[in-house]
């Protein structure tokens, strides 16, 4: 464990990058999830078709291929993004395509009677969505987005392959200089696990706050 202590500054710097990539990519993913999830439920083809193409394309190709594409190929089209932007965009866009399904499923999970009651009470479509459908869908979404954020955290390790000095990158660097690797890699795994615990703990708290008073077994 001495080696971990010796390199603590380096590793902590790596944790910082890991957190930055995770948070920014999560923001991109949430935005894309809602944009594409709502667009796919739209009545208009002009909104539905691009959303379907986005989801299929980013779910069908490998995240690492997307990451490499942004990092290695895009510059030859004259667009040179910094490594951080490549990482955040690739991870955010790819996971947004998965999040699209979360948003869609959650919206569909709200019973039809809820929308009918909103019509009967003369809510406008926008009010019905904001006041009735969304709060109920959010309850379904919270734990699923929690899992998605953990996938994003894990995916953030891939930015080490495009030279971004995150936790995995630093661990790999230390390994290359030293022979004793067990301590470093075990520590890194535990650090990821702890961050993931924080994420799922947070998601649980949000879910509990959203389902205040609501008994899942009834009504």
């Amino acid at each position: 464990m001495q080696i971990v202590w010796e390199y603590r500054q380096l590793l902590l710097g790596g944790v910082r990058i890991t957190l930055i990539v995770t948070v920014l990519a999560a923001v991109v993913a949430v935005l894309m999830s809602f944009a594409s999830g709502l667009a796919r439920e739209s009545r208009h083809r002009i909104l539905r078709v691009p959303a379907i193409i986005y989801v299929e394309l980013f779910r069908g190709t490998s995240l690492l291929a997307q990451l490499f594409w942004l990092f290695f190929v895009l510059p030859s089209f004259g667009i040179e993004l910094p490594a951080l932007a490549c990482g955040v965009l690739a991870i955010g866009l790819c996971n947004g395509a998965y999040g699209s399904e979360i948003v869609r499923g959650a919206l569909r999970s709200v019973p039809r009677g809820q929308r009918e009651a909103a019509i009967a009470l003369n809510y406008s479509p926008a009010q019905s969505f904001r006041l009735i459908v969304l709060p109920q869908a959010a309850r379904v979404m919270a734990p699923l987005f929690g899992s998605l954020f953990i996938e994003i955290l894990k995916a953030s390790s891939l930015v080490s392959l495009i030279t971004l000095p995150d936790l995995t990158f630093q661990a790999k660097n230390i390994i290359l200089v030293h022979l004793n690797t067990t301590a470093v890699l075990s520590t890194v795994l535990v650090v990821y696990f702890v961050i993931a615990l924080f994420i799922s703990g947070g998601a649980q708290r949000i879910e509990r706050a959203l389902s205040r008073g609501v008994d899942h077994t009834a009504g």
Partner: peptide
């Protein structure tokens, strides 16, 4: 919107909003 204001409805399965008191 104008017409719905004249009508109210009560449903078989209540359709209360579960996230509200």
């Amino acid at each position: 919107h104008h017409m719905r204001a004249k009508v109210g409805m009560v449903f078989q399965h209540f359709n209360l909003f579960p996230h509200m008191t």
